Amino acid sequence: MTKVVCPGSFDPVTNGHVDIVERAARLFDEVVVAVGVNESKKRLFSLQERIDMLRRATEHLPNVSVASFQGLLVDFCAEHGIAAIAKGLRAVSDFDYELQMAQMNGNLTDVDTLFIPTSPEYSFLASSLVKEVARGGGDVSGLVPDFVLEQMKDAFTR
């Protein structure tokens, strides 16, 4: 059974994230969406809210589960018997960073990194950009699942 992890902060989950997870779910027997915990970063959504959003966004995919991790992703992979990391790439700038990360991870363990090019309609999409536009009152419908849009509106009015 081939198991892969799709890691990220997912603050919030976007339709671009869902697209990458769906495509990984077609390629692998099992996909674990791993939400990174970094206490030093200020997030719009709590860890539990991000996990709940991801579970809801991927509930139509029977071979996808959601978990959280702290520390090194390769340690999470070793603990869960995961052989590969699947990462979405939007642009060449993503590749520069992700290649270095993949090479470091490969140096630490035998976990491979696979790159999935982002679908063209999501090539500009980033969680930070979605939050910035939404915070400014811009329309981000179509960029995030509908229920995430509602949760973002609620979060900005807290």
Score class of each variant (00 low, 15 high):
Arg50Val: 06
His17Met: 04
Ala102Val: 09
Glu59Gln: 15
Val144Tyr: 02
Asp112His: 08
Phe124Tyr: 14
Arg23Ile: 07
Phe28Trp: 09
Thr118Gln: 14
Val66Phe: 05
Glu132Met: 04
Asp94Met: 02
Arg158Trp: 04
Arg90Thr: 06
Lys3Trp: 00
Leu72Ile: 03
Phe147Leu: 10
Val92Pro: 02
Phe124Trp: 11
Thr109Ile: 04
Val144Ser: 03
Phe69Ser: 14
Asn38Arg: 09
Arg43His: 14
Asp146Phe: 00
Leu114Lys: 06
Gly16Ile: 01
Val21Cys: 10
Val111Arg: 02
Ser127Tyr: 04
Phe10Ile: 10
Ala34Asn: 14
Met101Ala: 14
Arg50His: 08
Ala126Thr: 12
Cys77Phe: 01
Glu79Ile: 00
Ile85Glu: 13
Pro12Thr: 04
Thr157Phe: 05
Ala83Trp: 00
Leu125Arg: 01
Phe156Arg: 12
Asp19His: 10
Ala84Gln: 07
Lys131Thr: 09
Pro12Met: 08
Val37Asp: 06
Gly81Gln: 07
Pro62Ile: 02
Leu89Trp: 02
Phe76Leu: 07
Asp110Gln: 14
Asp96Lys: 14
Ala155Ser: 15
Pro12Val: 03
Arg55Ser: 10
Arg43Tyr: 11
Leu99Tyr: 10
Cys6Ile: 03
Ala24Lys: 05
Asn107Gln: 13
Ser46Met: 09
Phe115Tyr: 11
Thr2Ala: 12
Phe28Asp: 09
Arg90Met: 09
Leu129Arg: 08
Ala78Trp: 00
Phe28Gly: 06
Phe156Gln: 14
Val74Asp: 12
Leu27Arg: 12
Pro120Asp: 14
Gly8Asn: 09
Arg43Ile: 00
Thr157Gln: 15
Asn38Lys: 11
Asp75Lys: 09
Ser123Ile: 10
Leu99Cys: 04
Val5Phe: 04
Ile116Gln: 12
Leu89Thr: 03
Lys41Pro: 02
Asp11Thr: 00
Gly138Ser: 03
Ser141Asn: 10
Gln151Asn: 13
Asp19Cys: 07
Ala83Ile: 03
Leu89Asn: 03
Ile82Cys: 09
Ala83Ser: 15
Phe124Ala: 10
Gln48Leu: 12
Asn15Gly: 04
Val4Tyr: 06
Ala25Ser: 15
Asp75Leu: 06
Leu47Ile: 15
Ile82Asp: 12
Arg158Met: 10
Asp154Thr: 13
Asp11Gly: 06
Ala34Leu: 13
Phe147Gly: 07
Ala24Cys: 11
Ala126Ile: 05
Phe115Ala: 14
Phe156Pro: 06
Gly88Tyr: 01
Gly8Asp: 14
Glu49Trp: 07
Gly81Cys: 02
Phe156Lys: 10
Met104Asp: 04
Ile20Val: 15
Leu54Ile: 10
Phe45Gly: 07
Glu132Phe: 00
Phe95Gln: 10
Pro145Phe: 01
Gly71Cys: 09
Cys77Leu: 06
Asp19Asn: 15
Ser119Arg: 11
Glu79Cys: 02
Leu54Val: 08
Pro117Met: 15
Phe76Thr: 06
Phe124Cys: 05
Pro120Leu: 15
Lys131Ala: 13
Gly142Tyr: 09
Gly88Ala: 03
Glu79Asn: 01
Met101Ser: 13
Phe124Glu: 13
Asp96Ala: 14
Ala67Leu: 04
Leu72Trp: 04
Arg50Thr: 08
Ile82Ala: 08
